[in-house]
Structures are given as structure tokens and as C-alpha cells.
Amino acid sequence: MTRLWVSGYRAYELGVFKSDDPKVTIIKYALRAEIIRQLEQGVDWIITGPQLGIEQWTIEVVNELKSEYAVQVAMMAPYLNIEKNWNTEKQAQLAQLKTQVDYYASVSAHEYQNPSQLKSYQTFMLSHTDGALLIYDPEFEGKTKYDYYAITNYQNGKDYPWQAVSFDDLQEYALVYGEEQESDKNY
């Protein structure tokens, strides 16, 4: 596997409305650990979307890992001008991230027209990646449930490994992170 699709909850689905929310630290810690594990198994491209939340945090984490690993990151938007209705601050945040990825493109050459563009996006992501990592818990559905269903349906007859990081997993990462922080204080 060399190309990994990473997706998950939107920031608002996690109750995150500020970049300095402590939840972001734990989520990025978990993303870092999971992405490193994937890189050590041969992944060299992380492909994600532009959504606020897991997708944008993934780009930030991968960019931090570039000094240690030979990894590239691509941001694929489902359609043109996805940020068109976002507030100015979030548009600027996305514009900044676009300059920090190794590749950026939109799957559709048009602005949003109908839900079939989102279906086409999923088909594109599945056919252009070798596996997936979702920050997603089926017990707490969000918009990521559509990617979850697309991945599980795609697996019928295909070798497409994927992993979900659940809320229980994130709680475990929070405990490990806390222990590491406490250990660092004692030195």
C-alpha cells in the first residue's frame, strides 16, 4: 500500500469550534500515531479532503512528519470552490493549507450542483488509494458515515484494507498523551 485515504468527522461534529480546543491536541496526537504506523508499513502518499476537522488536521500532521518521513500529502476537493459559503477566516485557513500540500485538485470541474458529485468523489478516492483510515465511530454517525458505507461496500470482492479510530480509541490516546505529558514534567 502506498496511498492512504484519511477522513473523519468535521470539526463541528466533534464540538470543536476553536483551533486551541484541547480535543484537537488529542486528535492530532492520534492521527500522528496512526499515520506513522501506516508510513512504517510503506505508505508514502496521504490523500485527504479539504473539510474542516479531521481532513485539515491530517494535512497539518503530515506536514509535521515530513522532516522524519518521505511522505507527500494531497488534498482532493469533491467540487470547485468548496469553501464558497465558509466564513472568511475558514476560507483563509483553507487557502493557506492549499499552499502546503504537494498536490491539490477538485474531482469535479464544476461548483456544487448535486449529491452525485459527492458520490463521484468517493468513487475517485476509493479507486486512487490503496486503503483508508477513518476517525469514525459507527455508534456516533456524522457525515463520515457516507465514506464508511462507501468503503465497506467497495470491499466486496476487493482487497481494500481500512481502519477506523473510534471514540474509545481516542480516549485511549488521551490517556497515553496525558501519561507522556506527566512523564515529561518529571524530567
Rank of each mutant, 00 (worst) to 15 (best):
I46T: 03
I47P: 00
I47M: 11
Q51E: 15
Q51S: 15
L52N: 08
L52T: 08
L52I: 09
G53R: 12
G53E: 09
G53T: 07
G53V: 03
I54E: 15
Q56M: 11
W57G: 06
W57A: 12
W57I: 11
T58Q: 12
I59G: 05
I59P: 05
E60D: 04
E60S: 05
V62R: 10
V62Y: 13
E64A: 12
L65F: 06
S67Q: 04
S67M: 01
E68F: 14
A70M: 02
A70D: 08
V71S: 04
Q72F: 04
Q72T: 09
V73D: 07
V73S: 05
A74H: 14
A74T: 07
M76L: 04
A77W: 01
A77F: 11
P78E: 08
P78Y: 12
N81Q: 12
K84A: 08
K84N: 10
N85E: 14
N85V: 05
W86Y: 10
T88A: 10
T88H: 14
T88G: 08
E89N: 06
E89C: 00
K90R: 15
K90F: 04
K90N: 09
Q91R: 15
Q91I: 12
Q91M: 13
Q91L: 11
Q91Y: 00
A92M: 07
A92D: 14
Q93C: 05
Q93M: 05
Q93D: 15
L94V: 09
L94I: 12
A95H: 03
A95Y: 01
A95L: 01
Q96A: 09
L97P: 03
L97E: 01
K98F: 00
T99E: 12
T99Y: 09
T99M: 14
V101T: 07
V101M: 06
Y104M: 00
Y104F: 13
A105D: 08
S106C: 13
S106Q: 04
S106W: 07
V107W: 01
S108V: 01
S108P: 04
S108G: 04
H110K: 12
E111C: 01
E111I: 07
Y112N: 14
Q113M: 01
Q113N: 06
P115H: 02
S120L: 02
Q122R: 10
Q122T: 02
T123C: 00
T123R: 01
T123L: 06
T123Y: 01
F124T: 08
F124C: 05
L126P: 14
S127Q: 11
S127D: 11
T129G: 06
T129P: 02
G131Y: 01
A132W: 07
A132C: 09
L133C: 05
I135K: 03
I135C: 02
I135H: 00
D137F: 13
D137K: 14
P138M: 07
P138L: 03
F140V: 13
F140H: 12
F140T: 07
F140C: 06
F140A: 04
E141W: 09
K143Q: 11
T144Q: 06
K145H: 11
K145C: 00
Y146L: 09
D147G: 07
D147L: 14
I151V: 12
I151N: 09
T152M: 13
T152P: 00
N153C: 13
N153G: 13
N153E: 15
Y154D: 06
Y154C: 13
Y154K: 00
N156W: 05
N156L: 08
N156K: 12
N156Y: 11
G157L: 08
